[in-house]
Design a protein around this nucleic acid. Sequence first.
DNA 1: TTTTGAGTTGTTCGA
DNA 2: GTCGAACAACTCAAA
Length: 445
Amino acid sequence: MSLSVLWLRRDLRLADSPALLAARDAGDEVVPLFVLDDVLRRPAGAPRLAFLHGCLRDLYERTDGRLRILPGRPETVLPRVIRETGATSVHISSDHGPYGRERDERVRRALDDVPLVATGSPYGVTPGTLTKADGSPYKVFTPYARAWRERGIRSPATTPRKVAWSDGGLRSDGIPADPDLGGVRLPAAGERAALQRWRTFRERALPSYDEGRNRPATAGTSELSAYLKYGCLHPRTLHADLGDSDADRTFASELIWRDFYADVLWHRPDSARRDWNAAMAALPYDDDDALFEAWAQGRTGYPFVDAGMRQLLGEAWMHNRVRMVVASFLVKDLHVYWTRGARHFMRHLRDGDLASNSHGWQWVAGTGTDAAPYFRVFNPVKQGLDHDPDGDYVRRWVPELRDVPGRFVHEPWKLPGGVPKNYPERIVDHGAERAEALRRYASVR
DNA sequence: TTTTGAGTTGTTCGA
DNA sequence: GTCGAACAACTCAAA
């Protein structure tokens, strides 16, 4: 009787999993394992941890209760698992983040002659493998996407009908208690919920995705980000279901953005916390704690911004359109360095993904690949009027403005009686700060 | 090596 | 209200 270990990290599913197939082929029985790694847990924030626990519960049930959950550093846990179970190989889906790469190297060394076998990755194209003709990495999305469409994998791996799971005789610590969520409401976690969400999105929202995706008041986006983050489903599975309509192609390209940013981070691990474009490091920033707190708490006096920041605190998620607007506000209206906003997002988002988050912020800040031109500054009022014309999104998240009529909801300072009680006055003047941002960008050119 | 066309998501202003 | 131009120049990708 031979055993193989399936060490799960951010691939918490059974369908379309090449690593699972490899583990099954390598042994008579498979020991599913998750390591509770403090290095990853500490910065995660309560919503992300709770969501992860939900994914683990789902997986525990579906592996007939064999999933082992062990705390500790992976480089000590894995060798111990090998000693205690006698397993002959460890199977993973490769991780391409800065920490994951180093961790896996340490584990590989610690396992000595037991192979750590990486099969597949959480992306349609494994980071680092799609390069230009001369072998250098892409720095612009569109040509990357063109190449991706030629070479990306769209067909899912087969899903085994039955896997012989084993607990390997290991004692499991079980899934830790959920942290206090303080009223945050999360969707159901795990693979089954993810597939259900995908079906619902395809039926209801995908056909009108081109317009619907910019309407934060409605469920026009897939809301699959957290499921993708933890690998409850693989993007391949999604690509395989997509057709050639404009809406399907637009959605596919959103998935390709995810691959692109993982690729950028793979080539430049330092760009998770520093400007990808070193030439922008000379940009002057401010760092006013009171202004930052007003932004973080959703009390800037700009309703569309405040609605977004409160949605983040309320749902551990924010609509993508609004992410751009609030990020632009922090960087270009408050002149705060993007990493401070990115850290806040990572702490509060249930989908917080290092590559997408860091490079999404850098796109807004103008310091990243394909960066927005410096003169592109979002106007929080215009964005609100354009994308939340009825004000439903603002009224949902900013109760102080629930009774404000019409377009005043996006510019309550124009109300005859002034800003409603309890709602803050604008903390800065957008017109003036836009001009200031343009001055600062001009100073580094 | 040189050349050419192009580059996620915006805003403002003036005709 | 609608529309096109200006906002700048630079870098990237590929022929």
